[in-house]
Design a protein around this nucleic acid. Structure first.
Lengths: 334, 334
DNA sequence: ATTTACAATGTAAGTGCTTACAATATTTTG
DNA sequence: CAAAATATTGTAAGCACTTACATTGTAAAT
């Protein structure tokens, strides 16, 4: 069943059928109805490939994300997909893992599928070494690229992110009023990761203090492993009044550590998570977490993209404030 | 840059170029190398739409899922996408929400994009009312349909799932040896939901006991709301020795309830979750949960699909056992 | 009534690939 | 060395649409 069959049954030319298919040119109401009736009755579905060939697009956007089973990235993907669909776009999902080579490979694979744009979901896509981001810059020569939670200055690259640095500086500064014994526990130095760390550092600097390297702990492991690592450090005599983390899972690990070490939360140890994800409220007391407004940013990323499609002038970067969700693992925060 | 440009620069016909593109027919090594060189040098990328039009496929599978931000579904989508990519298929993701009308609409939308198959991720796709599943049966006339965690008997529909009924019967039976005060807290009667409930019921029946309706509590809310609901019932005088749940989030709610009610876990109240998801290990004590082998099933679903593509004989349903992951919220389970 | 304007429709040339079949070149065989 | 067999390449007809441009039909204007 193709456009010829329809045109024949309706007694018109294929051009007219195509016109009603695309709803653009003028077709008399009478023939439009007739054609629609024939389509209905035959259950005709236009061939999307032929359509794509003729129009040069299939209304598809590629979403790249390292790991869509990660709670935060899964949410991002979900919001993005939802928002794309509002605008009649389909989402081609591709989970890349964290290796740059692989990311570049998959990005090009999506490109070869002729997606209309690429959305890179996750701050891990922007590396500190600009060389490694080159593949993104090149991709942007083909289609618009939107980065969620990462910033990269290049033509046709748009970013939507949270000001992680500022909120981290703010929160750290608040704790610094009462104690220097703050541990910053972070997972990896993605774009956001670097911002957060910089925020912590800056708060110390602003207070005229030095942040000892021992108080910056990079650790990329499970909840259980996080608990272990902290216990080991604790056993070696390290003590903290506050543990700031770069994500809620690490905070849960810290929470478990506190319990294992017999430390009362928040009286003896305060804990702050990041992302304000669902996991933060599973513990008792529930974990204070920084809300980086993932949903808002995700939807904005898509909105920006649509404006780019429409040829509107769009700023290359949109940023929102981080805001703290105060719960039981902290006291005295504002 | 199209196939004509390449053929010209390489001094061959487009047919030969197409042949090296598809790597199938014999092309002399010399000309193959020459053509590859030209492609390399010009950065040629074949047009996927034209390819799709000629071949009738773009190697794309549609994944339908109600809500990819849900931890369990997100994992399923992740595993499926990973596995599809191994076989060079792309994943078109579509989040439908839980309304049947909407699901049907989106399913047809994916179909109109000419996907090679559909994977329905989540037991919510199979409803008790067969009428409501009709749209799936019809879709299967166009392309193979694979259902994850749901069973539907129809031509060209394949299922991969866990025997939820049996494991639920088994676990319930174990508790019934020592107490009848078991609450089964469940979210919704999806396909799996119905199986689980049936398992609980059967265990009671097998033990010659009756399961009072008060001990079946359907509740579809957040962790916090779950805690509330249980507290209310508790305040009204209801008492339980065991709370079985249909997912880990409900179990976390039960966990929080226990804490709020001052009940020691597992001494005074035992709790069992379902899905063995990451959230189960956030609490203290960690939650015993039933592992329904989501990863295995997800990957199997894709594997089955590939066999269908290859024209191999495939059973219409594959089932795995559920297995219990014993942790701190239970005692005496085997 | 005739010209003019414009709306509705049709014709035909893309869009870029695949592949059956035909044609040609190269080996193998007698 | 010619004929047969086989490997390599080319020709041309799909695949199912879109759309610029041409044509026809209709209503308004003169």
């Amino acid at each position: 069943m193709n456009i010829y069959d329809i045109s024949e049954k309706a007694g018109v030319s294929i051009a007219t059928v195509s016109r009603v298919l695309n709803g653009n040119s003028r077709v008399s109401e009478k023939t439009r109805q007739k054609i629609l009736a024939v389509m209905e009755e035959t259950g005709y579905q236009p061939n999307a490939f032929a359509r794509g060939l003729g129009l040069g697009t299939m209304n598809t956007v590629g979403i790249l994300c390292a790991d869509s089973s990660d709670a935060v990235l899964a949410s991002a993907v979900y919001y993005i997909e939802q928002e794309l669909r509002k605008y009649q776009y389909d989402a081609l999902l591709c989970c890349t893992g964290y290796d740059t080579q692989v990311k570049a490979k998959y990005l090009n694979l999506l490109l070869s599928k002729r997606v209309d744009a690429l959305i890179l979901a996750g701050s891990n896509f922007v590396e500190a070494d600009q060389e490694k981001n080159q593949y993104i810059v090149e991709a942007a020569r083909e289609v618009p690229v939107v980065i969620l939670n990462g910033s990269l200055k290049a033509p046709n690259v748009y970013c939507a992110l949270c000001d992680d640095r500022e909120i981290m500086r703010n929160v750290t500064a608040q704790f610094l009023k009462t104690t220097d014994q703050i541990l910053y526990l972070f997972r990896s130095l993605t774009y956001s990761g670097r911002q957060k760390a910089a925020g912590v550092r800056q708060a110390f600097a602003d207070a005229g203090k030095e942040l000892p390297e021992r108080q910056m702990l990079q650790f990329n492991g499970s909840i259980e492993e996080t608990r272990q690592v902290l216990l080991e450090r604790f056993a070696q005599g390290e003590r903290w009044d506050v543990i700031l983390t770069s994500d809620d899972e690490l905070a849960v690990g810290a929470h478990k550590f506190a319990r294992a070490a017999g430390l009362a939360v928040p009286e003896e140890l305060q804990i702050v998570g990041y992302n304000n994800s669902r996991i933060a409220i599973c513990c008792e007391p529930e974990i204070t977490s920084i809300d980086n407004h993932l949903e808002y940013c995700s939807r904005s990323a898509v909105a920006m993209l649509m404006q780019v499609f429409d040829g509107e002038a769009v700023p290359s970067c949109m940023s929102v404030s981080g805001d703290i969700m105060i719960r039981g693992t902290t006291s005295g925060l504002v």
